[in-house]
């Protein structure tokens, strides 16, 4: 079988297209590259969606944590503490166990039957956990940035007569983002790395549709040779990391476009938040 045929058959295997059975006897380099790459689709899916949704929840949580009213502040503080203080691995497991307790037939809300059976599948359940998790980590970053917004900026906004939503949208939020961006870039990188945990606890692989590490482990177990599949997976993740650094760097330049060239903070990638 030529490599093009293998790509045609297994390229979208992780989504359920193409060959139904995983390879059983021939584990060529092409097979491994194709299947592990196919699994990467899930890592990207989880990473992109969780980051996108998590960004908005994180902004809200950061504001809530900075609020004076304890009724708003306390729940946000607890939410952030629980998700940042416990391993993602255990969060996945508990979330799965909690989700399967939902009644199968669906929940009846005001006469409408809401289907619940889909929430236990990885694409929904694990995404939900990752979303909450990244929201908690990002919220802590945004909260720190919010507290470091220079006093002068706020005074200037007051002097212009900006209040409420306008003050937030025009002054606080952009400054917060600018300050938080380097740390947020790290969060994004480590969130992508965390997506590899999805199929290791709780969530089952439906019809052997797994992520990159699921297939890497499949090959390592079948060929008894860890020296090929894991470096392939590592290679793919290095590519993702480089792409992320590039993308976030572009946004960083845009966020800081008003500053003189020399003052623009360079993105420094530090490992601050892995799970």
């Amino acid at each position: 079988m030529s490599c093009t045929e293998i790509i045609a058959e297994y390229g979208l295997r992780s989504l359920g297209f193409g060959e139904r059975l995983l390879p059983r006897s021939d584990f060529t380099l092409c097979h491994q590259f194709t299947l592990i790459g196919s699994g990467l689709i899930w890592n990207i899916y989880f990473g992109v969606l969780a980051l996108t949704f998590g960004f908005f929840l994180a902004t809200g949580l950061a504001l809530a944590k900075a609020a004076d009213n304890p009724l708003i502040r306390k729940p946000a503080e607890w939410f952030i503490f629980v998700f940042r203080g416990s391993p993602l691995f255990i969060q996945f497991f508990l979330a799965y166990e909690a989700l399967v307790m939902l009644p199968r037939a669906g929940v009846n809300i005001f006469g409408l039957t809401v289907q619940t059976s889909w929430v236990t599948s990885a694409w929904a359940g694990a995404l939900f956990v990752l979303f909450l998790n990244t929201a908690a980590y990002s919220a802590e970053i945004f909260y720190g940035a919010l507290r470091s917004v220079p006093k002068g900026d706020i005074e200037a906004a007051d002097a212009y007569g900006l209040t409420g939503w306008h003050k937030f949208r025009r002054v606080l939020w952009p400054t917060m983002l600018r300050l938080a961006w380097p740390a947020y870039t790290n969060e994004a990188i480590f969130l992508f790395h965390a997506t590899t945990l999805v199929f290791f606890s709780g969530f089952p692989a439906y019809q052997q549709r797994g992520d990159a590490l699921y297939y890497a482990k499949f090959f390592a177990d079948k060929t008894f040779n860890p020296f090929i599949p894991y470096p392939i997976a590592a290679f793919y993740f290095i590519c993702i990391t480089l792409a992320l650094i590039g993308l976030f760097g572009v946004i960083n330049r845009r966020l800081n476009r008003h500053l003189p060239q020399a003052h623009r903070p360079r993105l420094r990638i530090r490992p601050q938040i892995i799970r």
Partner: peptide, 25 residues
Amino acid sequence: VAKSGATLLEFATLDDTVAAVKNGE
């Protein structure tokens, strides 16, 4: 199961598989 045409749902332990049937997964 994979060959039989049914949709295979794989778990690491026997216990997980039984739990999946009990909860309707």
